[in-house]
Amino acid sequence: MLAFFLRSLEAAMIFTFAGVGELVDQRGGVLNVGVEGIMLFGATLGFIVTKTTGSYTLGFVVGVLVGALLGLLHAFFSVTLRVDQVVSGMGIWIFGFGITTYIGSAYTGPLGLERLPTIGGLSPFFFVAVALVGVVWFVLDKTSWGLAVRSVGEAPDVADVSGISVTRIRYACTIFGGALAGFAGALYALYYNPVWNYNFLMGWGFIALALVFFSMWNPILLLGGAILFGTLWQLSLNPELLLPGLFSRYIWRTVPFIVTILVLVLISTDWFRSRWGGARPQALGEPYVKE
């Protein structure tokens, strides 16, 4: 049971990294629906580099770099070229899915390295994820940087007039979000599930995206949501812990996805929106065009 709980927290840690990155991105007004693609890239390239060089450090560095690069690409498309952000994000997802399927297939199989060390049975990165949530919350809510990011996400024209560079902030947020998604992917492939397989990320990027909507753009609530979904995911893998023999193991695997839909529906209801709906960044998804 303890092992189950620790595994759940580790799943939560990956959702948290990807989700916090996306959250910062969206607070700055840029929606990136391509998290899954960035995570696939971070996971696959990190996996290949670590497998060929034997160095975990290099794998993580490559994961972060490729994530940052894809974030930069998304920023270039959506901020500079002002392409529809959904189109660009979808593009990054399909790009990630297509390319990683091709380059990763030669490395299908386990990583075959000694597992990374743990602290009290948990990956040290779990504590990093929790600290990151605290830091991001503090920076966004209490510092002038955070104010700049929020103002760009809420009212870019006002921010622009007051001397904040909308372009620079949006690039910074999107690259930061990409780097974290790439790191989350690398962590998935190098620690949580170190076996490369066709499309082995199984929609975690999309769940992370849903978590951001669910968190109402609050990093602390995001951490809570991540723990909930981490637990659900582990439960769907080990249903015998809760209700042995009720459904087949395949049906259990659908549960986290069904719950994601239910949660999205709940937060989309009028009842919910009228109470807590004000948190959505006003300029989310809209390119900023200087008048």
């Binding site: 399909i94 790009f95 990630g96 899915f97 297509g98 390319i99 399927t101 091709y102 380059i103 297939s105 030669a106």
Partner: peptide, 11 residues
């Protein structure tokens, strides 16, 4: 390798 068509899709 496997998946040339997926790579094409991505590019």
């Amino acid at each position: 390798g496997f998946g040339v068509d997926y790579a094409l899709m991505g590019v």
